[in-house]
Design a protein around this nucleic acid. Structure first.
Lengths: 198, 198
DNA sequence: ACCTGAACACCGTTCAAGT
DNA sequence: ACCTGAACACCGTTCAAGT
């Protein structure tokens, strides 16, 4: 990280990196725009060249996180294809692993209500891309498997399960080691997936 | 709400009420101790008589919320007893209903990490009381039902499901009306409960 | 184009008094 | 015992310049 000058849009990325660092250290509540600027070595006013306000900076972090999450879910699913049950497990595992590997990103993604007024359509689209992956799997559960309910209900069941596991694990409400995430997630999610496939 | 004097511990409750009000209006991120004091009509320093700091005030709100949540889960479960599947559904429904009826409480309960250093044992105990209700049900799923997995895994599956449904619904990621919560929750949770009972 | 500096209205928290 | 008032070090954001 250079600390003297920033050109060619470098500052934007430097600020994003600094933000992720700070969020990892202290959590979103105490994150300040001024400290992010300080860490990069610029005046705090320089931030406004690249982000409309503090919320926009956090939204950019969240968007970046969703893109990475979706990429990892896609990759995991592709590896497990073409068997539906394996793909469901792979998607779930990728989600939980992301949350534990990038907790700062994950907390910003799921924590503060950044996009309440629809200010950040790009963020919304990144979220929807993830949603679409689950919808596609549940649709296959209906045709290939034995799922009888409505698509929407199945998606929420799956989404809730992975989201809940990730959050409860992050909050240390569940006493597991990082190396056991695989087995743990697999076993917790099993009843839900079994229920979905009939 | 009287605005001139506070005696006999009234101020504490008045501050809690004001905090819940404010949290409902703007969310936890922009909640300020000073505005809570203003709303009650006292100097902001008066807050420190009853709460060690801002976090302690939020922790008190969270604790109050957990007590109410547990009471409502208990009541719903008792009404549905003694059939296990009905009790599981009742518990799940009570949880989701609480989240939607008291979103300000729910967001503080699940949002900021208030008790990271174990500062608030009372809050922790209230959370554990809720956890205990689920543990008892999963234990019965093992003896009365056909659940084969470990207690811990089943509890996380159930907890994740209700938590996820509540959060996704609150975030309006799921397009349901308040009057349909009953039916919606029942259908989303069904695969998980079916999976748990074997 | 990109960054700075001073200023404004806020915040949580501390100190020292007031009744 | 309970509340206040002034002060401190911070914050996000605006305005007006600087190169």
């Amino acid at each position: 990280v250079t600390r003297d000058t920033y050109h060619h849009g470098d500052l934007r990325n430097a600020l994003l990196e600094a933000a992720v660092e700070l969020l990892g250290e202290h959590g979103a509540e105490s994150f300040t725009l001024r400290e992010a600027a300080r860490r990069v070595g610029v005046n705090h006013r320089a931030v406004y060249r690249h982000f409309e306000d503090k919320t926009a900076l956090l939204a950019a972090v969240a968007e970046q996180g969703y893109r990475e999450l979706v990429a990892q879910m896609r990759a995991a699913q592709a590896k497990a294809a073409p068997e539906l049950e394996r793909e469901l497990h792979a998607l779930a595992l990728a989600y939980v692993k992301f949350a534990l590997a990038q907790p700062a990103h994950f907390r910003v993604m799921t924590g503060p209500r950044l996009n309440e007024d629809g200010r950040f359509p790009e963020l919304e689209r990144a979220v929807q891309d993830g949603y679409a992956l689950m919808v596609a799997l549940i649709e296959r559960a209906k045709t290939e498997g034995n799922y009888q309910g409505r698509i929407e209900h199945g998606v929420v069941a799956l989404w809730s399960a992975v989201y809940g596991i990730a959050m409860l694990t992050l909050q240390r409400r569940v006493p597991i080691e990082l190396r056991d995430v695989d087995k743990f997630t697999r076993r917790v999610i099993a009843p839900t997936i079994r229920g979905l496939l009939g």
